[in-house]
Amino acid sequence: MEIKLWINGKKITDNVEPDMPMLEFLRDKGCYSVKRGCETSGCGLCTVWLDGKPILSCTVPLMRANGRHITTLEGLQEEAAEFGAFLADEGAEQCGFCNPGFIMNVLAMARELDAPSEEDIKEYLSGNLCRCTGYMGQLRAVKKYIEHKKGARSDD
């Protein structure tokens, strides 16, 4: 089937099988940040944005994205590095395999929620599993990043 979509702002037209999962297409197109941790929408590793909203690309058929915009971490390199520095300074990136999906959701949360509480953060990110960190270092990094963003906004 013919599909037309935008990946990280770049228009792509292609012919794909109707059952092609979005995740596999994205990796085929070089978006290697998109990881598969399970096949059952249970880990959050494959999180990307569809028209700016986080979705789990392992279980979304690519055809759903026809005429729409997908964003992966490859398209958010500056923001990834900005938040990622906070994560790195906690030592909480660890093996790094869950980082891209997690960071996609953190950046979505930063856009969606104004001054989220600790409970808000945990709830928003609860679908993003991590087996290395026990989540505490991730939480410290998210809180520091939100403070940093608030500071940056009030400087404007």
Partner: peptide, 21 residues
């Protein structure tokens, strides 16, 4: 000292550094 991991920035920016990448 809390030295940052040498591979940290590659990991947090999603670089293709794992086996299947």
């Amino acid at each position: 000292k809390p030295v940052r991991k040498k591979d940290a920035m590659a990991l947090v920016t999603g670089k293709p550094v794992y086996c299947d990448d």
